[in-house]
Design a binder for these strands. Structure first.
Length: 817
DNA sequence: ACATACCGGGG
DNA sequence: GTGTACGGTATGT
């Protein structure tokens, strides 16, 4: 018997041939050793709530369930709450995870069964909930050393009957290793994992380790460069480097979707089994989304977290590493021409060194992004009780749900089920009156102040006790403002004040904790942990409203959503009215934010208004400054039927452009179209010269007409997502791909097909040509389908019609412009 | 009008 | 892994 203290970092389970599962907790001991703990005490389980008083009878029937390949091991009658009402439930333990489905099915057939709950939570996740174990927090374990499990390649393997989390100490000094790969690509073609080798892999760790592995020797290589013989050796060294460095976290940027899947494919080619801590690299593919998991090492794809969670508040133009690093770290990628990577590699010149430096820099940026966001991730781990691996891939709704699940357990609440597909469909078809949107008057504005309620919805939920558990037929105290239903009927919703609802209770705790954290931050302004804690609490609180109306939610409540927005509208309208009263020009408002054009007023006056207004609000509510923007353009969306949606671009005081709701720059647009949109926004927002922007577009259009624009700028790229034969609808890229195959050019699933639209009539695909063969392009197509659509709505705002852009004849009706 | 296919991130 | 994104846009039928 040994006792040991360790930080659980990752969880998994191992099943034997019969399907019996044992939980495995991977982690670090206090003195930095790798450990794997097998918790043999845990059995898959779920609740059955009886329909009537025949609970004993139901229990007896459940206990008898025993078939060849599944059985009930044990059951207990327990006191719990379900949606805040006390219930007697039967807690059923199954022999193995895969038995759950069959047992549940059998029990559902019993007359006495009313509800089956918590049978839809993954085994590992349910373990953490049931045992109330928070990853990254110190645990104590008493057990036996399993000597025969040398294969796990950790320092200790412990078999135990109990893992206790009796401490609060956090795992605070992880070894973090970031990596990035560079891939060979012939000129003008995007690399393909079946054809193009990995030529270099860069590593960067938080304790200063730097290395670039590559397999073509060149002179005067930097110290960090290490040469290997070939791609196969590169794969081996990749694996060795990771195993030798032995990181707690391995980090990449889009490594779920690119680096790891690519590595896996290349390794397979050489029949190398990539094992880390003796566990193979697993790539899970769901549709287009892949995730890469290394059992025992937490793989953080920092891109996922930035895109899913951080992105919302950052308002980034796009999520490319270069852009994100610039915004978050103030650092740049190295400037190399990736289109030449294949050429340089083939030449074998010392220019390869530039690519090595580029490679290393990308790994460093991924590392630094991770280190910067790690405090926030750590705080979220504690709120949702999931390992870092899961936390960095969560969506907003999942953050809320997992936090609710954790709190449910602590409050003896049985967790509701995930909705079935049919229920989801029904939920999706029902709409309700959403947030108040003050339609922006499309236009160009100067000196814009943006204020928003940081905790409008959460505080409404708490203040009015809004919850699926408090929804009531009669007015007992909390009556919502008027709500207009789909049918047109006007009603008010009621929430009982008698008992605090489950979600209001959870939220109240979150909000009061955040207030305490903010108090502490006033004294200790630069405390990164407190900042991260405040951020994590804010994230959970703010996402809760959306959760009520999210069709996949366990605690779904449409009536709650309706009521929250109804109350929300009444508050934001108050802000709008009072801003107008004070003589401010309100240009836009959506949900919980308000955009004010300062016009002849000063920033100070706006801040005074804010301060005054805040004094009139209930204590938990606060209108905050989101930002000041010297210039902004508001554009109306094409389909105005469903209300004006957000679509605007702002330039902030640091001359950075924030674009919201515009078509993002995509690969299937020509380079020219992307460039034109970007440049037009820049001229308008940074230079404030609409005439210049108009002239710029006119010049481009004339150049296109005169065929002065290089054909390379006209290339449209589209990827083949499936095999050529399986296309029902053949787009231009499929047609071109066929032409390429005829010419013996190697084209496969995943190939990015480049084409140019040539002159002529009829379908686009009939005119699509391989760029190298195309002599000229269809000017009208590019003007009408690429250039004009990319800027049309921007110019619409400025009072130019689409026709003017094309013809050059101004019909500008001077009005407000 | 409706259906189908692609974008993102990554080289 | 006790699962299967999403919202928007272009092209073809």
């Amino acid at each position: 018997m040994v006792t040991i203290q360790f930080y659980p970092l990752d969880i998994g389970h191992e099943t034997d041939e019969s399907g019996k599962a044992v939980i495995q907790l991977f982690g670090r001991t206090v003195d930095g050793k790798n450990i794997c703990v097998f918790d043999e005490s845990y059995l898959p389980n779920f609740y059955v709530i009886p329909k009537n008083n025949k609970i004993e009878e139901l229990k007896r029937r459940i206990d008898k369930i025993k078939k060849e390949d599944y059985k009930v091991v044990e059951s207990k009658i327990v006191d719990r709450n379900y949606l805040r009402e006390p219930v007697k439930a039967i807690l059923v333990f199954a022999d193995k995870p895969i038995s759950i489905k069959s047992i549940v099915e059998e029990i559902k057939g019993f007359d006495e069964t009313y509800l089956v709950k918590e049978s839809d939570i993954p085994f590992d996740k349910k373990y953490l909930i049931d045992k109330e174990i928070t990853p990254n927090i110190l645990c104590y374990v008493e057990g036996e050393v399993l000597l025969e499990r040398q294969d796990l390649d950790v320092d200790f393997v412990i078999k135990t009957k109990e893992v206790k989390q009796i401490y609060t100490e956090e795992f605070s000094e992880p070894k973090v290793l970031a990596f990035d790969i560079e891939v060979y690509a012939p000129k003008g073609r995007y690399p393909h994992e079946n054809k193009d080798p990995i030529i270099m892999i860069g590593f960067a760790s938080n304790d200063g380790f730097r290395k670039v592995l590559t397999w073509k020797k060149y002179g005067n290589a930097e110290d960090y460069v290490e040469f290997v013989d070939d791609e196969k050796k590169l794969m081996w060294e990749f694996k060795n480097t990771i195993n030798k460095y032995n990181p707690d976290y391995i980090v990449g940027y889009f490594s779920d979707g690119f680096d790891f899947p690519y590595i896996k494919t290349r390794a397979k080619k050489y029949q190398i089994n990539l094992k880390f801590n003796n566990h193979s690299l697993r790539i899970n593919k769901r549709g287009n989304i892949s995730t890469a998991k290394l059992k025992g090492i937490s793989h953080i794809d920092i891109f996922k977290f930035i895109k899913n969670i951080m992105g919302g508040s950052l308002k980034l133009e796009d999520y490319s590493l270069g852009n994100v690093a610039k915004e978050l770290l103030g650092k740049e990628k190295h400037d190399v021409d990736l289109n030449r990577i294949g050429v340089v590699w083939d030449n074998g010149s010392k220019d390869i060194g530039k690519y090595c430096a580029y490679n290393l820099q990308d790994a460093i940026l991924a590392l630094e992004l991770c280190m910067k966001l790690l405090p926030s991730l750590d705080e979220l781990v504690k709120l949702v009780n999931l390992p870092l691996y899961d936390v960095c891939r969560l969506s907003y709704s999942k953050i809320v749900e997992k936090h609710l699940m954790k709190r449910a357990k602590e409050m003896s609440e049985i967790i509701p089920n995930r909705p079935e597909q049919g229920v989801i469909s029904t939920r999706m078809t029902h709409t309700y009156e959403g947030a108040f949107v003050f339609k922006p008057e499309a236009g160009l504005y100067e000196n814009i102040s943006v204020f928003d309620f940081q905790s409008l919805y959460p505080s409404i939920v708490v203040a009015h006790n809004i919850c699926v558990t408090t929804l009531s037929d009669k007015n007992e105290g909390h009556e919502s403002p008027e709500i207009i239903l789909e049918s047109g009927e006007k009603i008010r919703r009621h929430f009982s004040p008698k008992k605090e609802g489950f979600i209001p209770a959870v939220l109240r705790e979150i909000i009061t904790r955040r207030i305490r954290v903010k108090e502490m931050l006033k004294i200790d302004r630069d405390n990164k942990v407190l900042q991260a804690r405040s951020y994590a609490l804010k994230t959970v609180a703010n996402a809760t409203y959306g959760y009520f109306g999210f069709f996949g939610a366990r605690w779904y409540c449409r009536e709650c959503s309706e009521s929250i927005t109804a109350w929300g509208r009444s508050y934001i309208l108050k802000v709008i009215e009072s801003a107008k009263d004070q003589g401010f020009k309100v240009i836009y408002s959506d949900t919980d934010s308000i955009f004010i054009a300062l016009e002849n007023k000063t920033k100070e006056e706006a801040l005074n208004f804010l301060e005054k207004f805040n004094q009139s609000l209930p204590s938990l509510m606060e209108l905050d400054v989101e930002g000041f923007y010297p210039k902004g353009i508001f554009v109306s969306k094409k389909s105005e039927s469903s209300g004006a949606k957000k679509k605007y671009a702002l330039v902030d005081e640091k001359d950075r452009i924030k674009v919201v709701g515009f078509e993002t720059i995509r690969r299937d647009w020509s380079y020219l179209a992307k460039e034109v949109q970007r440049k037009v926004l820049n001229i308008i927002l940074k230079e404030g010269d609409t005439e210049k922007a108009y002239d710029y577009v006119r010049e481009i259009i004339e150049n296109i007409k005169d065929k002065k624009v290089d054909i390379n700028n006209m290339i449209i790229q589209t990827q083949l997502k499936k095999s050529i034969e399986s296309y029902q609808v053949e787009g231009p890229h499929v047609f071109v791909a066929k032409k390429m195959i005829e010419q013996g050019i190697d084209v496969d699933v995943g190939s990015v097909i480049r084409y140019v639209v040539a002159e002529g009539k009829g379908r686009v695909r009939d005119r699509a040509e391989i760029p190298e063969e195309a002599k000229t392009y269809d000017a009208d197509y590019y003007i009408n389908n690429q250039i004009v659509p990319s800027v049309e709505r921007i110019f619409d705002v400025l009072g130019y019609k689409k026709e003017e852009l094309i013809s050059g004849k101004k019909q500008k009706t001077l009005g407000e412009f």
